[in-house]
Design a protein around this nucleic acid. Structure first.
Lengths: 107, 107
DNA sequence: ATGTATACCTTGCAATACAAGATATTGAGA
DNA sequence: TCTCAATATCTTGTATTGCAAGGTATACAT
């Protein structure tokens, strides 16, 4: 019952949501999640996830120069990624509903 | 990005919440979760979880006869289990907040 | 020249949900 | 009586995933 177990199957959806708003690179997404209140999410978590989602055709990537370090790999949603995000959102809403039902137990 | 990944670290907390309300046996908890809206949760998921939580001292169990089949193993919360439930609840609320923040992205 | 922040990636481990299957009891119906 | 369904528990093996730990490289300031 650790927080890391509870993150499984959540982070990928959150990354899709972040990318959907604007194109974004991995390092930036980590900071972004942190700003949204998540405990620091390891780069060893994020980069493999992004690569997997690219392999699955949910995102594409473009390298762009940076003034402050090495090149950044910007990610963009594909149509499939858009669909995957939408699927994630409904699964999340469903999960939220069920867990809160159990927690409140009004029946 | 499957529903089963999203369940990780969630089901144990839900079981604690169910047991907290009233003593309960595994088979019954499966039906209970189903009533709360969860897709059918495998017995291969529930029984190992209950055994692990007992090993960790979060629950105790008592065998009782049934009129409709083999003996039932009823589970009860220990003080540690009560604490674990409370920890789960705050982690859940926190997760909910963060995910919804990312999804809504109002900043 | 050195250090710090930025930025990406890999390897190996631990945890967990589940499918699939095994086992046993009870009561109802053919 | 025999059979079947429902009840009830448990085990084994698999797939997936988050993360710690470590590696590499660039840009800029000191």
């Amino acid at each position: 019952m650790s927080q890391t177990q509870m993150m499984k199957g959540i982070i990928d959806g959150c990354l899709l949501a972040i990318i959907a708003k604007k194109e974004c690179y991995g390092y930036e997404m980590a900071e972004s999640l942190s700003r949204y209140g998540f405990d620091t999410i390891s780069e060893g978590t994020i980069y493999p996830l992004l690569m997997r989602m690219q392999r699955e055709g949910l995102v594409t990537s473009v390298l762009r120069n940076s003034t402050a370090g090495p090149k950044r790999k910007y990610y963009l949603l594909t149509n499939e990624g858009q669909q995957a995000l939408s699927d994630f959102l409904s699964r999340w809403v469903q999960l939220e509903k069920c867990v809160n039902a159990v927690i409140k137990q009004e029946n």
